[in-house]
Deep mutational scan, measured.
Amino acid sequence: MEVVDPQQLGMFTEGELMSVGMDTFIHRIDSTEVIYQPRRKRAKLIGKYLMGDLLGEGSYGKVKEVLDSETLCRRAVKILKKKKLRRIPNGEANVKKEIQLLRRLRHKNVIQLVDVLYNEEKQKMYMVMEYCVCGMQEMLDSVPEKRFPVCQAHGYFCQLIDGLEYLHSQGIVHKDIKPGNLLLTTGGTLKISDLGVAEALHPFAADDTCRTSQGSPAFQPPEIANGLDTFSGFKVDIWSAGVTLYNITTGLYPFEGDNIYKLFENIGKGSYAIPGDCGPPLSDLLKGMLEYEPAKRFSIRQIRQHSWFRKKHPPAEAPVPIPPSPDTKDRWRSMTVVPYLEDLHGADEDEDLFDIEDDIIYTQDFTVPGQVPEEEASHNGQRRGLPKAVCMNGTEAAQLSTKSRAEGRAPNPARKACSASSKIRRLSACKQQ
């Protein structure tokens, strides 16, 4: 084909351009004929944790799935940006308080904090938690009735009371019990989460009196709706648990309003109706937990002794299953770290194939690490110290990083047969305790 000078094309009309061969290198194709290559998922490591896909996002930050490269346990990490926390009232204080509380709590029905990582340079905090497959609110939203069968609701409620009793025994008032803060594992274990607005009572406090509340409006008791200066913290949790039980068994809320002012007005009056299909035992329990006067409201001991709580409820309806993943529609909620794991395991070791967030990740503290002497050669063979940054567990980050890069360049065919977990650990520049 004859090559045409581009400067001469402006002298031709459209018809003349076609005659000189423009149609031979300008093609129009339908979008259905285009085959897009999927974007390669680059592996990203935060300390010893391999990052997966997004699980959810809230006002405080994002939650992603991660894999512990040492234990191969599935975890969830809450990623918090200090810049964003400053824009939220009491944001930083709530996060630090939640970390302090979770560090000393150990119960099967309370979410466990596994690790805390802090990135000084990017001003990011990573709260590594045990993995929960789904939230209770997500399960309720997945069915038209917006409720659980009585047998399933009873099982979840009993676990909620177990976890709540443990928190109260530790002198902690949750203040925000609701389905949105109750998570579930694949085995059906309920976990109380989000202790950001919780309050730890003084060890020598005479009672459970509280003065502040930041919980969700629909789950607040009349004493808070009416603006009382002080109130019983434990009875606030009992009320919120009662509203939660009402919601998961009926699909409704005892109090509603077009806006928060109308909602608080209705809560302050204390008038509500219980659907007739709840039955006398459940209705009596709800009335005891939603008692207007805090002094007359049920205690956890009274809830445990109630006939509806103690009764064994046979399954009359099919239980609400864990819904498919909202993004991938995966009904099994498979591990989202698998594509990243395959990338590390299947590809040659190259620095361009993975990302390490930083050479140094500070753990379990908000301060910069200490310094240790770096050896410097002298005339008599002895070495003197220069400062060298280290990880919180004493690992020399720069030395590990250099060693990792040197190993990656060394030709050794046997290394390709290593397991995925050992490869992740070798790529991680800074081991965590």
Rank of each mutant, 00 (worst) to 15 (best):
K329A: 14
N259C: 07
C73A: 15
L245E: 00
I300R: 00
D30V: 01
L45C: 06
S216I: 01
S299R: 13
N119G: 05
T212D: 12
G52M: 00
P326G: 13
L160E: 01
E130Q: 05
D53A: 06
K388M: 11
K48N: 05
K124R: 08
H202G: 10
G385M: 14
Q112R: 03
I360V: 12
T336W: 15
E256S: 10
Y166W: 04
D207W: 01
D359E: 04
K191C: 01
P149L: 03
Y36W: 00
G370I: 14
I361G: 05
I260R: 15
R384C: 07
G346M: 14
S307I: 06
M127A: 12
S378L: 04
A93W: 15
E375N: 12
I35A: 11
C73P: 01
P6I: 15
M22V: 07
T250L: 12
E65C: 06
I99Y: 00
L386N: 02
P280V: 11
R333A: 09
K175L: 07
L72Q: 09
E351F: 08
V337I: 12
Q399F: 09
P323H: 11
K78I: 00
P280K: 15
R426H: 15
V116N: 05
F298Y: 04
Y60W: 14
G171C: 02
R383Y: 09
K235N: 04
L286A: 01
E293Q: 09
R384P: 14
F298E: 00
S142I: 05
K64Y: 11
P324E: 13
K64L: 13
Y246Q: 07
K175R: 12
D176K: 00
G215M: 02
S299N: 14
V143I: 07
E130M: 01
D348T: 14
S419K: 11
T71E: 11
F231T: 15
Q305H: 06
D229R: 06
P411G: 07
A273T: 12
A414V: 12
I46D: 01
G180W: 12
K96N: 07
L72Y: 06
I177D: 00
C210P: 08
D343P: 10
V116S: 05
L17F: 05
L102W: 08
E199P: 04
P323W: 06
T402K: 10
V197G: 02
K62I: 10
V95E: 05
T367F: 10
Y36N: 14
D194R: 00
Q214M: 15
V128P: 00
S271I: 07
K146H: 12
S59F: 03
S59W: 03
C418V: 15
I111Q: 15
Y131S: 08
R297F: 00
Q364L: 10
G381P: 15
V3G: 12
G268V: 03
N94M: 02
M335D: 03
A406M: 03
Q7M: 01
V236A: 14
G135D: 06
V150C: 04
P339R: 08
T402N: 05
P221C: 04
P314C: 13
L164I: 08
E130V: 02
G58C: 02
D208S: 09
L353H: 11
K41W: 12
I99L: 04
A398E: 14
K178L: 03
F219G: 03
S216T: 04
N119S: 03
K97A: 12
H154G: 01
E165Y: 09
G15Y: 14
L50V: 04
E98A: 02
V95R: 06
T328D: 13
M129C: 09
H174S: 03
K48D: 10
N90D: 09
